[in-house]
Design a protein around this nucleic acid. Structure first.
Length: 156
DNA sequence: GCCAACGTTGGC
DNA sequence: GCCAACGTTGGC
């Protein structure tokens, strides 16, 4: 099982929104960056753990987790002319953009803020701190153990 | 294929 | 609202 960090602006889609969705299942779409796309399409598997990161707010933080319910499939929005995510250059026979379905798992007892992540030496190598703009990022098992501890989770 | 211009992201 | 980082675009 791999671990991923998924970044979102809570005004667009928050962990609360995921929990509130039918069955706690949410389509994770709108990825329009090739590096993130490649990870999503080639490496993200059913059952993988997703850590949800809220960005674009006063205190950015890892707030909880979800799991991958369905692996990559073509993002329907790219073919929808009315959508802001429409990509006229993408063809149905060779889709350019992909999405996944995730299912809500939990809110962390204590959200782990970016400030604390930055101040934690064991997390200094996180992709988040080096490539902050990447919206799908790999997280190592060791990083997850540290994150889980700081977020108040019992050891798995 | 290089590179300047431009747009977007996201922390502060 | 500013600005740094960085991805994309398009002229050459």
């Amino acid at each position: 099982m791999a671990i991923w960090l998924l970044k979102t602006e809570p005004a667009e889609c928050s962990l609360d929104d995921i929990r509130a969705a039918t069955g706690g299942v949410m389509r994770w779409d709108g990825i329009r960056n090739y590096q993130a796309r490649n990870l999503l399409r080639d490496a993200v598997r059913v059952g993988d753990l997703c850590l949800i990161y809220h960005a674009g707010i006063r205190e950015p933080a890892l707030v909880g987790s979800a799991e991958v319910l369905r692996a990559a499939y073509p993002d329907p929005a790219q073919f929808d002319a009315a959508s802001p995510l429409h990509d006229p250059a993408s063809k149905a026979a060779s889709p350019r953009w992909f999405c996944i379905d995730i299912r809500y798992r939990e809110h962390f007892p204590r959200p782990l803020t970016l400030g604390v992540i930055k101040a934690t030496s064991a997390l200094a190598a996180m992709v988040l701190l080096r490539q902050g703009r990447l919206s799908v990022q790999p997280v190592t098992d060791a990083e997850w153990r540290v994150i889980a501890g700081l977020a108040g989770m019992a050891p798995a």
